[in-house]
Amino acid sequence: MATAAYRDIAIHLGVDAGSELPAQLGYAAALAAGCEAHLCGLFNRPCLPMIRHYIPPEVIERHKAECERAAVKARQLFDAAAQAEGIATEWYDMPGSALETVLVQARASDLLLLSGVVPGDKTARDYDRETLADEVVLALGRPILLLPGAPKPGLPKTILIGWNGSREAARAVHDAMPLLQRATQVTILCVDPEGQRGLPGAELARHLSRQDVAAELLVHAGRDRDAGSILLQTAQDRKADLLVMGAYGHGRIRETVLGGATAYMLGKMELPVLFSH
């Protein structure tokens, strides 16, 4: 029986939304419907950087118009996705930096969805999105769900937990509880270098069973630095539709946590990742 619940799910929308936005909004709406949660759209209109204290008026006008177009389009897509799922929504349209607006609003929610990078899409704006995810996950105090590409909608059925006994992993597991309790298959993956730590993850499996989550434990012999690729390989083998893991305080989440080579793979798999710090 599920005792944990998300009641407020937020999704951040920027002016740089890509072609995958409708799919991501569809995912968000389906998730909110599955959890019986409210969906909150956080749209932000970035400020223009000042160039020697002067910005030509036509540049300001163009920027404003661009923001307005993006806002209208995002709102339309958001409303359409919400209507399709019949969920209650809220819409915030805020000026200022994405980080600040997201932090202020999403602390009053249970989960924040952010769009990640699509493989092969190497525009400068992707860098901003990725940086935003890194900064947000450290400063928010709520879990984030990173959506690479266009994930298939619906509550995740097969969830893979990357467990290393860290504080961040503990956060991620407990923050993911509403999803874990609604999943049909949960696997805890521990990468254990030399089998020194007894049976890592056994305590967690027992704990999860008290939270009504029947989890299977998988201990993989391997080095810590290969943990990312082992995790993704396992996710692929098991056809996981959600990865749950801790986000650590150093560097870009996908590159340092999962390893540079695996970032591409993650994007290609269109596998959402719940990160917590």
Binding site: A5, R7, D8, A37, H38, V104, Q105, R107, A108, S109, D110
Partner: peptide, 17 residues
């Protein structure tokens, strides 16, 4: 300052819980 602006949102968020 910022804490206050969130009071209403948090109240609403908790109401949903």
């Amino acid at each position: 300052r910022k804490g206050r602006t969130l009071l209403a949102e948090i109240t609403e968020h908790m109401q949903r819980h």
